[in-house]
Design a protein around this nucleic acid. Structure first.
Lengths: 334, 334
DNA sequence: TCGGAAAATAATAGCGCTGCGAACGCTGCG
DNA sequence: CGCAGCGTTCGCAGCGCTATTATTTTCCGA
């Protein structure tokens, strides 16, 4: 599969393979003259280093394994894309894994990831199988858990408190004088974080006198269609509902569309709050009040932690936990 | 970084390392008794194979490198997610790279990818630097180019003709008796494929008597905001425009929203066709006529080609080109 | 009971690179 | 003029696994 090796480059540059290796690893340690002839040889031979050989010899690779539920989800896509660009600046490669919201699949992915002696592993959420936790605690691979805060991380964590998100949505609706609140959620069984938002929403709402709150859910993945269905269901079971928060903006959009079809004025008759601030949320009619999770910031901070940990000396094992927080964007739908 | 090796497993199972290796590579060639004791040893020792050592020895790895403009883009996210799940069934890992629409960055990514002796490389589009083409043609790594058809692929290709997409949009609008057509596009300089759609649109429209067509574009990435701006610009320059096609659904959604604000009836006064069939497109008001690119099918077929090529004998080097086509979904906005 | 083929297991020789310590050659000072 | 000291370069010994070939064991019919 590979023809040109470091030996060929060395031969052509009339140096030893060790020096060529050094040229890649610590360019400053090689004299200018040597550097030049090595660079020339590389170009002439079209040499591509074999990173597997390097990784084997060094017992570590420049691979960062990122494991998310699915990159189909715009939240994680954002984070993965941001991390990728930050990491590639440091010549770190991204290996991607999808759990599809299964902790069991996640365990397999972690096991595979470990097979590559990665520079770091990035996981989504704080909930994992016992075996996963054991694998990661035993190994001395840096671990960053993203998109969730609130429990003890394995190593480092970057994210925010989803319970607080639900709470913020409820407070906002109550402030807008909404009394009968509902949380519309898709796939709350699988999506722990959406469930936390629902929980925070209901708890905060119920702590206020004269305010009622409940959860309406659907097992299918979030989409505008599901949002419309959930709104219909909500009105059927609680005709007086006047404030809803949704597990994400797709649901909220579907709910708003359904209100338009039914002739219910938003926000007069019904206030709607979403989660995500997706591409369409600011532009739709009425524009959507939503809570924006900082997906890019999470990616950037996670990348930073990884890079710093790699660069740092071994002793420097600070178990950073970064709260990126979130922001409620008050727009027309509430 | 790694403690337990295949030797440890072998010692514990009272077999030779060779047999343990065989157990991983060709489980059927190992006796049931041996299999059992190996499995037991693996579990007891929590053995994680070192894939870099394996890859080095075998001169190939079970890594598939997927290079897309950005996974932030829902189209590519869909394809990447689908490929990932299909490939992981075959114990193939995905390594991800983002070009950000730069062919130069793509070249670096390909070079890096090659460093891992990947089982295959998946690229987006058919346009690459000369060096990229050379690297990929020289190596005997399977290459699949996705999301575009129309030029000579390096090896295999899965996608559709974007010129045909533009053409279909134009034909559809003309069939709806629209005569003054415009294509609203974001980032047409970088996004070759969007530019092809625009080109197909204009060419087809202009080939019909009494029909005029033009292109309005904006250098920013696609979003509903940009769509609204483009619509405003379109109406300013061509007040009589009554049919528009957009480079994607974000633009189309922004245009529809802007029409609502301006009190222009969609589709009566202005027909709108999008591209993408994104999550909100079926649910919005009016529901959006759009062209659906089969992102999941592209992913599935690309994965299939990769898997078949890997499984197949060396001689079997059929240079498959698969046209997944696309479908126009006629809804209320046209 | 035995020979021979088939099945199962084992020994061997690297894969291409890194990390270490050692060796080299040069400078500049005593 | 010699030698410490430094910046560079080199040689060696693996990293943990696979692929090939060699060897052993098992199975079977004659």
């Amino acid at each position: 599969m590979q023809r040109v090796t470091i030996m060929d480059v060395a031969a052509r540059a009339e140096l030893s393979p060790s020096t060529v290796s050094l040229y890649f690893r610590k360019p400053d340690a090689v004299s200018a003259a040597a550097s030049q002839s090595i660079a020339r040889a590389i170009k002439a031979l079209d040499y591509v280093p074999n990173l597997m050989a390097g990784g084997l010899a060094a017992a570590s690779s420049r691979v960062v394994s990122i494991i998310v539920p699915s990159v189909r989800n715009a939240f994680f896509a954002e984070t993965v894309a941001t991390m990728q660009s930050e990491l590639s600046k440091q010549r770190l490669q991204v290996m991607l894994g999808h759990t599809e919201y299964s902790e069991h699949d996640e365990e397999d992915l972690v096991r595979t990831a470990l097979s590559w002696a990665p520079a770091a592993i990035v996981l989504t959420g704080l909930s994992h199988t016992a075996a996963t936790r054991k694998l990661l605690r035993d190994g001395k691979v840096p671990v960053v858990e993203i998109w969730e805060l609130g429990a003890q991380p394995i190593d480092m964590a970057v994210g925010f408190h989803h319970v607080q998100v639900g709470s913020a949505a409820a407070s906002h609706l109550i402030q807008r004088r909404r009394k009968q609140l509902l949380f519309l959620g898709a796939r709350l069984q699988e999506d722990r974080r959406a469930a936390q938002r629902a929980q925070g929403f209901v708890e905060t709402a119920r702590s206020v006198p004269d305010v009622s709150a409940g959860i309406i859910q659907h097992p299918a993945p979030a989409s505008a269609d599901v949002g419309a269905m959930l709104l219909t269901e909500a009105l059927r079971r609680f005709p007086g509902v006047n404030g809803i928060a949704c597990s994400n903006d797709h649901i909220a959009l579907g709910a708003i569309f359904e209100c338009q079809r039914l002739g219910l004025a938003v926000p007069e008759r019904l206030s709607v709050v979403g989660f995500g601030d997706l591409s369409f949320s600011a532009g739709c009619n009425p524009s959507m009040t939503t809570i924006r999770p900082p997906g890019d910031l999470i990616g950037r901070e996670a990348a930073r932690l990884v890079i710093e940990r790699i660069a740092g000396v071994d002793g420097k094992t600070e178990r950073a936990v970064i709260d990126t927080s979130f922001s409620l964007l008050h727009r027309q739908s509430s």
